[in-house]
Simulated assay, not measured.
Amino acid sequence: MEQSRFTFVNVFHESVEFDRNYTLPFNMLDACIRSDGENASIATDLRTGEKLVSRRGTLTFIPCHFQGRYQHTLANERVNIHFKLEIYPGIDVFDGIKRRIVEYSPEECEELKAIFQVQDRIFMLSRCQEFALRFCHRHWPDHYEFNLEKTRRFDPVIHYILEKGNAKTEVPELAGLMRRSVGNFSREFSAAFHVSAKSYLQRELFKKASILLTAPESSVKLVAAQLNFSSEFYFSKFFKRLSGLSPAEYRKGAYVMK
């Protein structure tokens, strides 16, 4: 039976100034809980050039793989939930959605702000999941971008990536699992997933890194070693290229699980 699977990547509080371009491999539900009016934060859709000015009481859903520039100022304060809602590993319900979804909902923004202040961490995360799913159910896509029958033939490869994939994993290794030439494997994978095998590897590696960085006992150096990066420097470079944040900055702003 087909079903979706909700997975937390992190919950995040932003009250610092930055200007970044990034494309996150997961969904983000953002609530603007404070806005001082002048010098408001701006989010730009890099595909269309459309600009969105932060306004207190606004809920914004940014689908996975959305290409954006984020100019966040101290005039705004936001809380957001990073999550995946997958119907197959690496295939999100909202894959293929090219636009942001914006709602003006001061009551829900205040609700999420209050949820972030709950002291019981397990209960807080459960409330965050319920909040995110409620929003997703209101905006569920009419159709999915992927043919699941085509993707299932790659089950051995996907399970290998999820269980053993690291910074040293390369496309020829994956092609060997299916006894295909690199060229044939790459074409078939791209046709099934609408993304190259290399990009898929990088997305899943970034997701692993994002989750590992929230562990209280973790450090940037430790996560780099766990994921088999040759050095902390190359791990930081990889992470910042995908997220716009260094691992240390991400860990500082993230809700570190305890």
Rank of each mutant, 00 (worst) to 15 (best):
M28T: 12
E188I: 02
I81W: 04
G49L: 08
I91M: 13
E38I: 08
F18I: 00
E14W: 11
S231N: 11
F146S: 12
V79T: 05
Y255C: 11
A132D: 01
K237D: 15
Q67W: 09
L74W: 09
L148G: 14
L112G: 07
E107C: 06
Q117N: 13
K168P: 00
E145W: 11
V11H: 12
E108L: 14
S15M: 08
F18T: 10
V102N: 03
Q129W: 04
L125G: 09
N27I: 08
I62Y: 15
K221N: 13
F229K: 01
M1I: 09
F239T: 01
M178W: 01
P172M: 01
M28G: 13
L112F: 15
D45P: 06
N166K: 04
E111M: 14
F83L: 00
N166E: 10
V53P: 04
I158F: 02
A192L: 04
K237M: 12
T214C: 12
F185M: 08
H139F: 15
T58G: 07
H159L: 04
A209N: 12
V79E: 00
E50P: 01
L59Q: 02
N76D: 15
V102C: 03
Q226L: 00
S4H: 07
F83K: 03
A75V: 03
R99K: 15
C32Q: 09
A43K: 11
A175K: 05
L213A: 11
F193G: 01
R152V: 04
V102D: 06
A224Y: 00
S219K: 06
S4N: 14
